[in-house]
Design a binder for these strands. Structure first.
Lengths: 194, 194
DNA sequence: CTTATTTCTTAAACTACTTCATATTTATTG
DNA sequence: CAATAAATATGAAGTAGTTTAAGAAATAAG
């Protein structure tokens, strides 16, 4: 199993010696996931945190009116989970589905707890992950509160150009808080302009 | 200075002996803040993380069109900061203002880094804070994506009844992503019903 | 306790975005 | 490579929430 990608990522935030690196990596299992396959489903507890080695995922919920709403996308070097389900180990509310044939590295909840216990550095790593995630979501919430549908799309294009090509339009629309029809119009207007 | 409240809070998440507790608490400074006074302002780096001992705060931004949008409220036993400014130590984009005469305990950025370095438990504590915050914002984003203005207000009433009385309506409206006029209508409709 | 300031209310006109319905294009499968 | 399904596009009608404006109520300040 190739864990260099994960370790390269981790070493960007904490420095690990060879023994620590091996210890960390050995807690992960490689899993191949086919397009349209689910790795998390509502009512089942999300037992793993997943690091995307290759591929793309979408985390979403289905509202009472039947429409879906996307909380998160993940491609190479992103983490994905139903975070509320994972950290509290209670039933998930999200679906997480592969948008492409993918490879992920998964760590089980109890193994992560162990890692964090045995080595301060591992604790630091997961602290940094959570802080970056929280800072990201703060920026997202503020941007959503302060901008129109069109501005939200423009901003996404600017910040995540590589996601745009790999994510279906209806999913992106639901991430940005608009209908797929409205996003279609925004895109159409844009291409006519340029 | 009375730090029992902070320590009681911290001990809810990590167990500290007397020495550790003293070490942790000694990094905080008590600050009194008058109503309408700012503890964070745009363009100045947010140098402290603040624990609310008594009082209430509001973190918000002013959009290009001049309207304000609230990211967060904080009352007793909540933390408040411009989190992006604090963790990356770059200029803030938020205003944080006292909604009442308040008392807070502030820790400076560099002291927090030191605490996290010297004792695994302190690292764990801040990791848990970040994780809880991230899980909270995930729930918020999902709820906002999936519910109408009225449902968002009802949900806030249900989850944070104690905030509602202490927060001006225009601020609550801007937190929930609607105008104060519209929230006024929602409230009026509700009181007529019951 | 009077005046000034801030916050909340109400109503009417407006608009950004949704809904619905159907056509078109792109992707998937036997 | 047909045939079927899934995703996107487009127009017309509808609506949730905004905007503007003006008055009423509450709070703060002299």
């Amino acid at each position: 199993m190739n864990k260099y990608q994960l370790l390269a990522y981790v070493k960007h935030f904490v420095s690990l010696d060879d023994i620590e690196a091996e210890q960390f990596a050995s807690c992960f299992e490689e899993v191949k996931v086919k397009k349209r396959q689910f790795i998390v489903q509502p009512n089942f507890t999300n037992k793993h945190r997943s690091f995307v080695v290759k591929g793309a995922f979408r985390a979403y919920t289905i509202a009472d009116d039947g429409q879906d709403h996307t909380l998160q996308f993940a491609i190479e070097n992103w983490w994905v989970s139903d975070f509320n389900s994972y950290i509290y180990q209670h039933p998930a509310t999200l679906f997480i589905v592969a948008l492409e044939d993918s490879t992920i590295l998964q760590i089980e909840y109890s193994k992560e707890q162990e890692l964090k216990k045995i080595n301060h550095k591992f604790e630091t790593f997961f602290r940094i992950m959570a802080e970056k995630g929280l800072a990201f979501e703060h920026r997202r919430i503020l941007f959503n509160l302060t901008h129109s549908a069109e501005a939200r799309y423009e901003n996404f294009l600017l910040n995540f150009p590589n996601f745009v090509q790999r994510v279906p339009q209806y999913a992106l629309a639901s991430y940005l808080g608009m209908t797929t029809e409205f996003l279609s119009r925004i895109r159409n207007k844009r291409t006519k302009k340029s």
